[in-house]
Design a protein around this nucleic acid. Structure first.
Length: 862
RNA sequence: GCCCGGGUGGCGGAAUGGCAGACGCAACGGACUUAAAAUCCGUUGACCGCAAGGUCGUGGGGGUUCGAGUCCCCCCCCGGGUACCA
């Protein structure tokens, strides 16, 4: 008879243990402890109305496993969760329905929390934070005051990415291909007064300190590229017929003698001044065209160069030649000085431009012969101006009468020499340029942190006193954007008007709010001391917990969040408010989980509900065309979104967790396959059956008999493999080893109870509810969560005898059993005395024998 | 274009320079069952062969090595990032 208590029932076991953990506050982190600390952080989610996605629990499961593992190893673990809850969707929903964003947010958070809790994660819920809570954003505002006082926040009238559909400006990082990152609405350029943060002041440190981080190389590289440091020189060009000077930035000062024209960005302030009267019409027409073009979708980038001549000339400072000044939109006002010296012989863009407009091309580098051959470029073509060379070589025709002679020098040497000469002649100097721009920190939205700022009527910008924080969001009932560049906050009359309590001076509050990134720039610090009403965090606690030892999240935050947070952290460090230079010591990106989709012969993906399966093949319901299975991003449009709630309801949270980890390496992109969850459910079922018999009793063959040699070997090998794999986050192979253990131990007639308990312990970080239940049934009345992690004996993992492969000239021929610890000499002796080995060698002469202990013998014969 | 990843059975994926394909899914065969599901046992890279066995095989081509999925060079394809950055 199978009784109820004999069955594995996740639907009973999982809520039982979740309740137990919650009621006993099992995972509350202690501030300060004798134990070593471990701070494991998940990127906190934006609680969207759509709820949890199978992608969310992937990283959360991995960190939960690490935390549970580390607790058993005696660490004091901090593992918090919270909500990045400011953001556009709740506000747009408010515009449509009138529901206040705080209500939407609260509901979504409740939904997210219960979904997350149903997965059995061991968060310290007493530290839950919410960026929209005034008790939280009070401190976000406080940090803004710190930034401002340090001179890192300023107002500036700049051309910004204005998104009419969203009614707000966006940071450069939030604009993709000329469209908004969220919603893909068109974005146009428009000058507006905005709050900016001087992240550029930290560019060098943000770049250098990347080196010391234990982050994926790809992410570090993306940060470096985004900062985009380039070293070169600023050079001043005099105009031929006026006293104006055009300053350019170049990374190739060595090519100055080859500069045969200049180009200004169309928006360059000198354009209006230097344009010759007969060119005014052409130039202003082009400027208009360029302005319109920058409003257009940037993906349709036309590589064909355009531009017009201004009618003016500049003097090349090294050769004294008069060179024409053009304007073109291939030079951007936003980078360097907005003007370039053009060296068509040695820059591909300049080359294209000069070719098109018939401008002189003057070669001043003789290409390196080997390199030119490799690139398939004729040296003579370069020298005659018919090909462009950007590589190495030797300088030619590059000397003047005022002491600069770089002929015969290499590119690098001539750069150095030229910069030296420019400096001595007062014409230029060595400069460093960054692609990184200052951070646009204003948004014209309601649902964000208000700035603690008042614009006084006399023009003074006044900061709200620290003691009067937070500046709370006013209640309003119309969330529609004004479309003027002001946020909906401008409608909150009462809130808006400010009167100085002492002087009676009047002013208006800042109506911009902070971008969503603000709250996530420092949330990891608030978890350390979430209820502190006197300060943002206690310094001693910060010192104890920081830095974050492991940070797991999606690669989509490679530049945005991670760069901004590092910037704030460095500012806080400089202010003596945090003890570490960097916030996140180790970073791991979980790969995206793809859904199943179906592709036709043209490569088009079909909606999953329009696909039918027959005999293992897939067909389109309407066209009858045969389709092939193809992994694709989960999307509503493809109807291939998998909802974790459904999976948990059918298989249980433990099977779900196990499957997500078994799919492959954490960082890899991998396709979801619900069949796979069944396999893991089966694995748990078989593990259960090995331990619990059909009556719900401990299986009869589990006793206190000693393990035999082979059982001991498998047990210790399993402890070793699982321990090492959890340490390195190779959770998929840890699970494989546990399966190997089960396959072996479920076949033995009798099993030692201690070995089974170790198995349950090894499983417990992965499938905590399952393990708790078995642990209890095995007679323990304490939770397994803090049981000491099993240790292994290296000697036990070794086999006495191993099978050695005998190869003849690399081909496998025979297998001989040999003692595991045999020496090379004895291996060779044993092999050569072996009958079948002799037969394999036959009459041929052995010239060499390679012995690899524990592995193989390779016999080379002539 | 440039910068990062990656390419291994039908599928997800394993492999300190040492027997490629661990583990799982799927498939097939068998046991149990009136039957099915569940469960259990077995087979499963391709090709040749009755068999013993052999040949080929980690995107393609070369190389280093006694030995290469792994190291080196060249090329192709896929994914991500970025883009007239001077």
């Amino acid at each position: 008879m199978i009784t109820e208590s004999g069955k594995y029932k996740p639907e009973v076991v999982e809520p039982k243990w979740q309740k137990y953990w919650f009621e006993n506050q099992m995972f509350k982190a202690e501030d300060f402890s004798e134990k070593p600390k471990m701070y494991v952080l998940d990127m906190f989610p934006y609680p969207s109305g759509a709820g949890l996605h199978v992608g969310h629990p992937e990283g959360y499961t991995a960190t939960d496993i690490v935390c549970r593992f580390k607790r058993m190893q005696g660490f004091n673990v901090l593992h918090p969760m919270g909500w990045d809850a400011f953001g556009l969707p709740a506000e747009q929903y408010a515009v449509e329905t009138g529901t206040h964003p705080s209500i939407t947010t609260k509901n979504n958070i409740n939904n997210f929390r219960s979904q997350i809790q149903s997965l059995g994660f061991s968060y310290d819920w007493s530290r839950e934070i919410n960026t929209t809570d005034p008790n939280y954003y009070k401190w976000t505002q406080w940090i803004f005051l710190k930034l401002h006082k340090k001179g890192l926040a300023y107002l500036d009238e700049i051309p910004v990415n204005w998104c009419p559909a969203l009614g707000t400006v966006l940071a450069n990082e939030e604009v993709i291909d000329g469209k908004s990152e969220r919603g893909a609405h068109p974005v146009i350029r428009r000058p507006m007064k905005q709050w900016m943060l001087k992240i550029t002041e930290y560019a060098e440190r943000l770049l250098n300190d990347v080196e010391e981080l234990d982050w994926p190389e790809g992410i570090k590289e993306m940060q470096r590229n985004w900062i985009g440091k380039s070293t070169g020189a600023e050079v001043d060009f005099k105009l031929a017929k006026s006293s104006n000077i055009i300053r350019v930035f170049t990374t190739r000062p060595d090519t100055l003698f080859g500069a045969t024209y200049m180009v200004l960005a169309p928006e360059h302030p000198l354009v209006g001044i230097i344009t010759a009267p007969d060119k005014k019409n052409d130039v202003s027409a082009y400027k208009k065209l360029a302005a319109k073009k920058s409003d257009m979708d940037r993906t349709e980038l036309n590589t064909e160069k355009t531009g017009v001549f201004t009618g003016s000339y500049a003097i090349n400072p090294v050769s004294n030649d008069e060179i024409p000044i053009w304007i073109s939109d291939y030079v951007m006002m936003g980078y360097g000085t907005g003007a370039i010296m053009a060296v068509p012989a040695h820059d591909t863009r300049d080359f294209e431009f000069a070719r098109k407009f018939g401008i002189k091309i003057k070669a001043i580098i003789r290409p390196d012969e080997n390199e030119a051959n490799k690139e398939n470029i004729e040296i003579n073509d370069v020298l005659s101006g018919n090909a462009c060379w950007t590589g190495n070589g030797v300088l030619i025709d590059s000397a003047n009468e005022t002491g600069l002679d770089i002929n015969n020098l290499s590119v690098n040497d001539s750069k150095r020499t030229t910069i030296e000469w420019l400096k001595n002649s007062g014409l230029g100097k060595k400069t460093v340029n960054y692609k990184l721009r200052d951070w646009l920190f204003s948004r014209q939205r309601y649902w964000g942190e208000p700035f603690p700022v008042v614009h006084m009527d006399d023009g003074e910008i006044r900061l709200i006193n620290e003691n009067n924080l937070p500046v709370s969001l006013p209640e309003i009932d119309d969330f529609k954007p004004l479309g003027t560049g002001e946020s909906p906050l401008a409608k909150a009359q009462e809130w808006l008007e400010y009167t100085d309590p002492d002087t009676g001076q009047k002013g208006k509050r800042e109506t911009h709010t902070m971008p969503q990134w603000a709250g996530s720039c420092w949330y990891y610090l608030r978890y350390i001391d979430p209820d502190n009403n006197l300060e943002a965090w206690d310094k001693a606690k910060e010192k104890y917990w920081m830095p974050v030892d492991l940070y797991v999240g999606g690669a989509e935050h490679a530049v945005l969040h991670l760069l901004y947070a590092r910037f704030w952290h460095k500012v806080l460090y400089d202010l003596g408010l945090v003890s570490t230079n960097e916030p996140f010591q180790k970073l791991v990106n979980q790969g995206m989980i793809l859904g199943t989709s179906y592709k036709d012969s043209r490569g088009a993906l079909a909606r999953t509900d329009l696909v039918k399966e027959e005999d293992g093949k897939f067909y389109h319901i309407e066209t009858e065309e045969e389709l092939v299975e193809f992994p694709a991003k989960m999307s509503k449009a493809l109807r291939n979104v998998v909802n974790p709630d459904d999976v948990i309801a059918e298989y249980g949270a433990d099977s779900f967790r196990l499957y997500e980890m078994f799919m492959g390496p954490l960082e890899a992109v991998k396709p979801w396959n619900t069949k796979g969850v069944e396999g893991l459910r089966r694995f748990l079922q078989r593990s259960w059956r090995m331990i619990i018999d059909e009556d719900g009793e401990i299986a009869k063959n589990i006793n206190d008999e000693e393990l035999d040699k082979e059982q001991l070997r498998i047990l210790h090998a399993t402890i070793k493999k699982v321990t090492k794999d959890l340490e390195t986050l190779n959770i998929n192979t840890a699970i494989s080893q546990l399966m190997i253990f089960l396959n072996a131990f479920s076949k033995y007639k009798t099993t030692n109870c201690g070995a089974i308990e170790i198995y349950v312990k090894l499983l417990s970080p992965l499938v905590p509810h399952f393990a708790e239940e078995l642990w209890q049934r095995l007679g323990h009345n304490q939770s397994i969560a803090y049981e000491p992690w099993p240790t292994y004996n290296e000697e036990m993992t070794k086999e006495n005898e191993v099978e050695i492969l005998v190869q003849l000239k690399g081909k496998p021929k025979a297998r001989i059993m040999m003692p595991a610890d045999i020496s090379k000499e004895d291996m060779e002796k044993m092999a050569m005395e072996n009958e079948s080995v002799r037969g394999i060698i036959g009459g041929s002469t052995v010239t060499k024998i390679i012995c690899v202990p524990g592995r193989l013998i390779n016999i080379i014969s002539g």
